[in-house]
């Protein structure tokens, strides 16, 4: 059993001109991977009120009692309620320290967030330091100090700043070269049927081939049995017809025999009568 540690980050630094290795998988397998990833998130331990309300309240009404225009103290990412959702209709996704919405985070917590399932944005509850504005969280440097210059990156919010230029991580044009196929032999969810073309070891491949051959043989036997059944049925039907014909012929023969007997009787009677007539004629002649 593979032992894994799940990771959560909102931003990842990547090189500009390189593309990753790729594989192609069935939709059900992607779902399995996503479910595995999401379902193993642990719910955040704390939900400090400092951040629980922030962007749910979409009202742009400025708050007059802003205390400081300087960077707001923000807890690490794992202290942020992952269920924070920034409505898409927020007109100013870029939040600066002067933005009253930020101020309202501290000043005006609202209970709306309580109804939102915490699992919705688990990636944002990572323990890495939170980075606001365009600052980048460099991987493997969790102690990086927090910078608060603009928009906090919040899962599901997808503010306009993310609709930025062309993706740097291009999809593999060659596609198939580095692509291994993960597919289900049968289109169901039984993962025992999973095969990965590049990963099947020869023994498994041999077993699979044998199974295929056995299945093929079974199908052939089924076909032969079916053919034999049909043949037997046809012969049975013919036998029944012959039997019917034989019975009919026997009946006809019986009628003919009876008629023949009648004729013979009549003939005997005629013969006897003729004999009698001959005797009478001989007597008269004498």
């Amino acid at each position: 059993m593979a032992k894994l540690m799940l990771l959560k980050k909102a931003e990842i630094s990547v090189p500009e001109d390189k593309k990753g290795k790729q594989i192609a998988v069935k939709e059900s397998n992607i779902t399995s991977l996503k479910n595995f990833f999401v379902s193993n998130y642990k719910p955040p331990v704390e939900m400090p009120s400092v951040t629980t309300t922030s962007f749910v309240d979409a009202s742009p009404a400025p708050v007059s009692n802003m205390e400081s225009p300087l960077p707001i103290e923000v807890s690490p990412l794992n202290m942020i309620d992952p269920s924070i959702i920034m409505p898409n209709n927020i007109s100013e996704p870029e939040i600066n320290p002067m933005n009253p919405v930020i101020n309202s985070i501290v000043e005006e917590p609202t209970p709306v967030i309580e109804n939102i399932p915490a699992i919705e944005t688990p990636i944002m509850s990572a323990p890495q330091p939170m980075v606001l504005e365009s600052a980048i969280v460099e991987p493997m440097e969790p102690e990086m100090p927090k910078e608060i210059t603009s928009t906090p990156v919040i899962e599901n919010s997808v503010p306009d700043i993310f609709n930025l230029p062309t993706p740097i991580i291009e999809e593999d044009e060659e596609g198939t070269n580095d692509t291994a196929e993960i597919k289900l032999v049968q289109d169901n969810d039984t993962l025992s049927d999973l095969t990965l073309d590049e990963e099947l070891d020869p023994e498994l491949e041999e077993i699979k081939n044998r199974l295929d051959q056995v299945i093929l043989d079974l199908n052939n036997y089924k076909k032969k049995i079916k053919m034999l059944e049909n043949e037997v049925n046809q012969n049975l039907e013919k036998s029944r017809e012959v039997l019917k014909d034989t019975q009919a012929a026997a009946k006809i023969m019986s009628i003919h025999q009876e008629r023949q007997n009648q004729i013979m009787n009549e003939l005997n009677l005629g013969t006897n009568s003729l004999d009698d007539s001959k005797r009478v004629l001989q007597k008269e002649t004498i």
Binding site: V14, P15, E16, V158, F162, P167
Partner: peptide, 14 residues
């Protein structure tokens, strides 16, 4: 789940 990929030049893609 979403992640933002950030290039050294600052370009970002979700």
């Amino acid at each position: 789940e979403k992640v933002i990929l950030v290039t050294p030049s600052g370009e970002r893609v979700e």
